[in-house]
């Protein structure tokens, strides 16, 4: 994915230029780039009149924000209780083998990032895997690789 940093001012401009807009601005930047580029943090701090240290503090506090580049597709394996009971670890291992990376890492071609997450609130569908925002229900060890096959 090409990251067009020139888009940042437009994103910041969507909200009132004040401290209380901070999280909304960061969320939109995260959505656009899949992570928070340094330049974005600096520009946000300046535009919203918030110290850079506070912007950094907020962006490292929430799991929803990432400071490292992610792949085009973020694959999230739920390892919450219900998914764990129904074999989430095996699903995770399958994906790790298929992508040749460990959870938390991004493939070299920057196509996929693999993450494990706590409960995603869809326990009846366990085990659950998310690709970006799409939920995949009742994943099976022998078919889960399809989710990350290169198209």
């Amino acid at each position: 994915m090409k990251h067009d940093l020139a888009k940042i001012p437009e994103i910041i401009g969507r909200y009132p230029q004040q401290e209380s807009s901070l999280i909304m601005v960061l969320q939109d930047i995260q959505k656009e780039f899949n992570y928070l580029p340094c330049e974005a943090l600096e520009q946000t701090a300046e535009a919203l009149h918030v110290p850079l240290s506070k912007v950094f503090s907020v962006s490292t506090f929430y799991n929803a924000f990432s400071l490292t580049k992610k792949g085009d597709v973020v694959v999230r394996v739920c390892i919450g209780t219900a998914c764990h009971i129904r074999g989430a670890r095996q699903i995770q291992e399958q994906l790790e083998t298929a992508l040749k990376i460990q959870a938390g890492e991004t493939t070299r071609d920057e196509k996929f990032t693999l993450e494990v997450v706590g409960c995603v609130g869809a326990c009846a569908m366990a085990p659950v895997v998310l690709t970006n925002e799409q939920y995949h229900a009742q994943c099976k060890v022998h078919t889960v690789k399809k989710l990350v096959s290169k198209r």
Binding site: S53, V55, F56, S57, T60, F61
Partner: peptide, 19 residues
């Protein structure tokens, strides 16, 4: 000045300058 802040959380929490 607000030059430094608390970053991360839980057992990774620490005092650090931005970035």
């Amino acid at each position: 000045f607000s030059a430094i802040s608390m970053v991360n959380r839980g057992h990774g929490k620490e005092v650090a300058p931005p970035l």
